Computed example of a mutant assay.
Amino acid sequence: MKEAFSNLKIIFGIDLILFFFCISGIVQISEKAKLPFGISQSDNQLFITSAQNNRYNFLNNSELIAVDGLRVTSTESVELIQI
């Protein structure tokens, strides 16, 4: 009986570690690039859909070619840019 209880502790410990690992992944997902506009994709082109702030002079339906000098071709590539 003690061996079963010991195994249960080990399994619970591993589950707890995996739980915190998953929680940290959720936090990382919420930390995506915060851009002052919305993006839509058509073929291999990205377009600005909703410019939220006119401070940067982005126009709606403008093509997005690069961010900080890095060429972007998909929404995923924009999300991976470290700002």
Rank of each mutant, 00 (worst) to 15 (best):
V67G: 01
G38C: 07
N61K: 09
I23V: 14
K9Q: 06
L59P: 12
F20R: 00
Q28N: 10
G13D: 07
N60G: 05
Q28H: 07
E63T: 12
F20S: 07
N54D: 15
N53K: 10
S62L: 08
F47W: 04
S24I: 09
S6M: 15
N7L: 05
A33G: 12
T73C: 09
F21S: 10
I48H: 08
L18G: 04
C22F: 14
A66D: 09
E31Q: 12
L80F: 08
E3L: 06
L46K: 11
T75P: 01
L18F: 02
F19Q: 02
E3T: 07
I11S: 02
L16D: 00
F5R: 09
G13V: 04
N61M: 01
I29W: 08
I83D: 08
F12K: 14
P36R: 10
C22G: 05
I23D: 07
S6Y: 11
E79C: 13
I29T: 04
N60L: 04
L80I: 04
F47D: 00
G25E: 15
D15R: 05
S30D: 02
N61H: 15
I39Q: 05
D68L: 09
E31M: 14
L18Q: 02
I17M: 04
I81F: 01
L46H: 00
K32P: 08
K9E: 08
C22V: 06
L70N: 02
L46F: 05
L70A: 11
I29D: 15
E31N: 12
I23K: 04
N7M: 13
G38M: 11
S40C: 15
L64C: 01
I39C: 04
C22E: 11
N53F: 09
I14W: 01
Q82L: 06
P36H: 00
S42Q: 14
T75F: 03
I29S: 11
F19G: 06
Q28W: 14
S62P: 04
F19R: 09
T75H: 07
I11G: 01
T75D: 00
P36S: 12
K34T: 07
F58I: 14
N57P: 03
V67S: 06
I48S: 12
E79A: 09
F19L: 07
F12S: 13
L64V: 03
F12C: 02
R55E: 11
A66K: 08
N60W: 00
E63D: 05
K34M: 13
V78G: 02
N60M: 04
D43E: 14
A51V: 06
L35K: 03
I83W: 05
G25Y: 13
L70K: 14
F58C: 10
T73D: 09
S62F: 04
T49K: 09
E79Y: 02
S24M: 13
E3K: 10
D68H: 04
I83H: 08
S6H: 15
N53M: 05
N53E: 03
S62T: 10
A51H: 13
L59F: 12
K9W: 05
S77V: 01
K9N: 12
F47K: 04
A33M: 13
D15F: 07
N7E: 07
F47Y: 07
S30N: 06
R71D: 07
S6R: 15
V72N: 06
Q52S: 15
I39H: 04
G38F: 15
S50T: 06
